[in-house]
Design a protein around this nucleic acid. Structure first.
Lengths: 229, 229
DNA sequence: AATTAAAAGTGTGAAATGGACACTAAGTGA
DNA sequence: TCACTTAGTGTCCATTTCACACTTTTAATT
């Protein structure tokens, strides 16, 4: 069952940079490699694209197979194709980045029992291949995009207090934000709905919980509204 | 000399959306196909990536071969990989977009003598494959990027009057801009150097000519300056 | 030489936005 | 009841944005 072509074809893979947020830490999901090259190194989840699936479907499939994660915000990031990025053969990797609500997804061990774990972005192990570069591009993209698109919510639980949203922004942007100005700005966008609930089991005044109002988002987006922070 | 793999590999191409600007028109460079499928249809220039070159090098090589253009601003756009986008076999296409100074480059006929021509973006023929979608993504990217990065200069001659720069912005953004406000804003960025020259052979008051000051750009960029219009 | 045409070039005031800043309210635990 | 922790709230000043119209310069036409 070999496949033969008149001209050489590179292999094509999809890799995913999956971000999660937990307790003031931005985290990335990594998988430990079992085989050479880079045996035992941590790497981004990913794999070969199948001939009948789209690139995005391939990315979703690989993430589901390797980490069990299925509900996520997914967007194409960049395509990496330096000739020597994989020592075995020419591999073009179409990278996606994803945002998941960490609380909802305790990661399953991969279907093939490889190690899967969340690492804080601020404290990463050495990665396989050019995955450090891919991660770097993903971080810059996330940092840039969160300024003008309301994607931060994808990293938080369904219901969250404003302070948690602010901490998320401060973590990703790596700069402190003024509480009053942040609240004014975010609330004035009209994307947050008050759930009429408050935090439970906190040892201080409980905060109101909000949720992202997706219907409002679509309405405003269609009207050309600007979500710049 | 066939190439054989244990698993099926898609073909990988690079395609280029080359923009030029001329006389208040944004234009795209297209090539007429000679062979089936889509015989005689116009298409984006592009071709197969060679195994030893990077994706960007491949894009530059294809553009040089097919159109003779060598000096250009080039940036990766997006990767298109729907299973059926090419009827012959599975083809993943890494698209780049490019900006060229149209005045400097009268397009050469392709090395293989295919028809090459500039088309106004506002008045395009039907295109081969999914090239209309690729062009659409490129246009949106250009429109978005020109708002916060000074890339418009890449489309103008070395020396240009402010009115021409303004017309370029108005063309790309598809909206009129106020002359005084535009000048104030652009000049205050400190990216334009006065060449001390003025227009020649115009039938009215001649305008000062400016050039893009790349050294200043790099300095300001490093300092984290914001080039939003 | 005077007139017309065409585009260049220039400033102000009003409105909206952005950014700095500090205290009170509410709830828990000791 | 006191101490601690986080929630929640408004004002002022500086800056930016936006709307807006006339004079200058040069060449072409009569």
């Amino acid at each position: 069952m070999p496949y033969t072509y008149e001209y050489p074809h590179p292999a094509v893979t999809v890799d995913g940079v999956v971000f999660g947020y937990d307790d003031a830490d931005l985290k990335v999901l990594l998988i430990q490699r079992e085989a050479a090259p880079y045996k035992l190194r941590w790497a981004l989840p990913g794999g070969f694209v199948e001939m009948t699936e789209s690139l995005e479907d391939g990315a979703r499939r690989e993430l589901a197979e390797e980490t069990g994660i299925t509900q996520l915000y997914l967007e194409q990031l960049y395509t990496f194709g330096e000739p020597k990025r994989d020592p075995r053969e020419r591999v073009i990797s179409v990278a996606y980045y994803a945002l998941v609500k960490l609380a909802d997804h305790t990661v399953r061990a991969a279907s093939d029992a490889r190690n899967v774990a969340w690492f804080p972005v601020a404290d990463l192990p050495a990665l396989a291949f050019d995955h450090e570069e891919i991660l770097d591009v993903a971080l810059r993209r996330l940092k840039g995009k969160i300024r003008y698109e309301p994607i931060g919510f994808e990293l938080l639980p369904e219901k969250f207090p404003l302070s948690e949203l602010q901490r998320l922004y401060e973590t990703i942007l790596e700069q402190p934000l003024d509480k009053r100005n942040f609240r004014k700005k975010i609330l004035s966008m009209g994307l947050l709905a008050d759930t009429e609930e408050i935090q439970q089991d906190v040892a201080h005044r409980a905060a109101r919980l909000y949720r992202f109002d997706e219907a409002a988002y679509r309405r405003l987006k269609k009207a050309g509204f600007n979500f710049e922070l």
